[in-house]
Design a binder for these strands. Sequence first.
DNA 1: AATGAAAGTGAGCAATCACTCACTTTTTTG
DNA 2: CAAAAAAGTGAGTGATTGCTCACTTTCATT
Lengths: 218, 218
Amino acid sequence: MMEEWDELFSDAEHGELTEKQKKIIQAAIEMFAEKGYSATSTNEIARKAGVAEGTIFRHYKTKKDLLVAIVTPVMRRLVAPFIIKDINKVLDKKHETFEGFLRAMIDNRKKFIEKHWPIIKILLQEIPFHPELKEMFITYVAPEPLEKAKRLITDFQKRGQIIDAPPLSIMRLAMSCVAGYLAAGQLVSAQKWDDEKELEETIQFILRGVGYVPKKTI
Amino acid sequence: MMEEWDELFSDAEHGELTEKQKKIIQAAIEMFAEKGYSATSTNEIARKAGVAEGTIFRHYKTKKDLLVAIVTPVMRRLVAPFIIKDINKVLDKKHETFEGFLRAMIDNRKKFIEKHWPIIKILLQEIPFHPELKEMFITYVAPEPLEKAKRLITDFQKRGQIIDAPPLSIMRLAMSCVAGYLAAGQLVSAQKWDDEKELEETIQFILRGVGYVPKKTI
DNA sequence: AATGAAAGTGAGCAATCACTCACTTTTTTG
DNA sequence: CAAAAAAGTGAGTGATTGCTCACTTTCATT
């Protein structure tokens, strides 16, 4: 179970973490993902982390502070690659086709989501109940990343590769399909789920949906 | 705030409900939707319902029993129309085109979801934490409704209206798009969201995605 | 009008909750 | 190496939790 996700929490704003602090965060992630935030007691977290309950409150003033500390860095990293990919995109012109871009983006985000799935589950569960989280989410998502993704899609539209629908609608629909694909993968029993086939089906569906024209024959 | 959703809970299995029982369920729905199941105390529910706390436990043995009582009938009704529509469909042959069927189905389910949104929110929130709910959901959804929906889609495929992808994949992708459309409508500020336009965009995206051929010209 | 069942009550229960604080241990620093 | 700072502890806090139970009120049936 020794993973390297603890780098997530030891970035600039937090500084280095002690062993006990890492254990607390790890235990909290596991418990929150399993039972939910409200149903998990600080006592349980302390016991699972092998730490005194007081230690938790030494580092996090309240239980909610602990939640925010867990969820914030993931939220930031979830949307960041949209910007990074955009820069590589516009400057390096690596992906000539929309299909190539779509495949790269799905692959990239899918791996991130799989790696940090417990935290993302917590994030999705708790957002409706904590206005601060919702505001934080909106801050990180809008408006820059959305603007850049918008420009990206507009670019593909100008190159005649995809249909002339509103860029934000296209983004929403493509993301819906990918989210549905990931959710179904979690829900359906593993034996009945052919992941590669479903992924390919999803990509083709999106490509038809955006009216993809394979290559621009100049 | 006087609605008629209380019929949901006074069906065959429950019998008639007293005024206080209705108040309890109504208060519980509001609180669960607002704060979540775990974060809501039975004390709060009782106060909001204008009822003694003991009254709650007279009718529901535990707090979880109350949750299950709220969520079960909605779960059943959420998937039932798939069967009903199917019967009308296969027998009455009302919808000649896939597009007509899609529009009718979206309209029907959208209205149901909007009407019972608080309960559905509770359902989505709590399913991950209560195995009984998940099992109940699977029981109601699979296998009959899924099988029937599958046959419906196969039928449209045979008529050459839509592409020959796996029916379950098609279902998943179409439902993802609709779910994303509904979720976005909840998330985006009302002034920026043109509902009718986004719905139309969603439908067209699905139709292109399934390779819809408008009418079968015999 | 009498009677038994069902509905409703609220004080009270042990358990648990998030959190505090006086204290000890470890680490950092001049 | 001594002193200060930071990390860690766990018994203890009052408040709150889900739930019980002896009791009263309401209702349906004869």
